[in-house]
């Protein structure tokens, strides 16, 4: 017998479009939740401006004068790398929010609502993307000040936002997967610290891959950050080139993110276990 009108557990093919619509809707509800929190307290975003400013202002100026043999100015080379870096830093610790929310019982309540796990994960990923967009604005301002030759083509700007959101989604779901596995904030922070610098230095963010030793080249080529930087380099500055082509960069980021979202959806419940 079927109790009246309160949802059926067996989904047939006819329900697929409905399920997809529900998935998309719920994903945006989760992103809305995060955006509302940010609206109540945006100070976090401004704190994030400090680090990239230092990189561009201090490292960029000094390193550029010391030994830069590439084409164009070193600052033009560096700015897309620093944008990708600050997106990485915003996203890579994002997983800790689910450990907090677990401790608060919020994850428990979310999991008891009829929301697909994948929507919970992707919603979080999108909201990391929203935070990351704020970094685009910040870093464009800093770049203008230090004299980076920014490409103002509106299509490029749009593509930059897309790449940045995707990059943030990629690293934040990676972070979420780690959080679901380690389950405590102490272990998570430890692992987070451990991974951030290698991800950053084993990429093309602050120097070209060509000058790396061979073993590091291999690491850099499987590092999603490399593809994000590569795309941004082709888009952000006048005369910028992307080595791998923007299509490949986009494909890599999309593919890796999808894998992390699927993994995260499977592991999400672990965190309350």
């Amino acid at each position: 017998m079927t109790p009246d009108g309160h949802g059926a557990p067996h989904a047939g093919w006819a329900d697929v479009p409905y399920a997809i619509a529900a998935f998309v809707r719920k994903t945006f509800v989760i992103a809305e939740l995060e955006a509302r929190k940010l609206r109540h307290d945006p100070t976090e975003l401004f704190m994030r401006a400090v680090q990239p400013t230092l990189w561009l202002l201090v490292f960029g100026q000094v390193f550029g004068k010391y030994r830069w043999h590439g084409e164009g100015s070193y600052l033009d080379f560096l700015a897309p790398g620093i944008l990708a870096q600050s997106v990485l830093f915003i996203a890579i610790f994002y997983g800790i929010t689910i450990i907090w929310e677990r401790d608060l019982g919020l994850v428990h309540k979310m999991l008891v609502t009829p929301t697909p796990r994948s929507a919970l994960v992707l919603g979080k990923a999108l909201s990391a993307g929203v935070r990351a967009i704020s970094q685009v604005v910040l870093i464009f301002i800093i770049s203008l000040i230090v004299g980076v030759h920014i490409n103002w083509n509106p299509l490029h700007l749009l593509a930059i936002v897309l790449i940045v959101v995707l990059g943030a989604a990629c690293f934040s779901t990676f972070s979420l997967v780690i959080a679901c596995l380690v389950k405590t904030r102490e272990r998570f922070m430890g692992i987070g610290q451990l991974m951030t610098m290698p991800l950053f230095f084993a990429s093309n963010a602050i120097y070209p891959i060509e000058i790396m030793p061979n073993w590091l080249k291999v690491v850099a080529r499987v590092n999603p950050l490399t593809y994000q930087v590569d795309a941004l380099r082709g888009l952000m500055v006048v005369g910028g080139v992307s080595h791998y082509s923007i299509a490949l960069d986009l494909g890599m980021l999309l593919g890796i993110t999808t894998v992390f979202v699927l993994l995260g959806s499977r592991l999400y419940r672990n965190v309350v276990g």
Partner: peptide, 30 residues
């Protein structure tokens, strides 16, 4: 899940949102 409501043992509303927003998000999820 569609038929139950659940209040966990720990106090678990989202402190960074208003009371109304806490409910609004759940209304949408349900």
């Amino acid at each position: 899940r569609r038929n139950v409501g659940y209040v966990p043992q720990m106090l678990s509303a989202d402190g960074q949102l208003s009371g109304y927003e806490n409910l609004l998000i759940f209304a949408k999820l349900y």
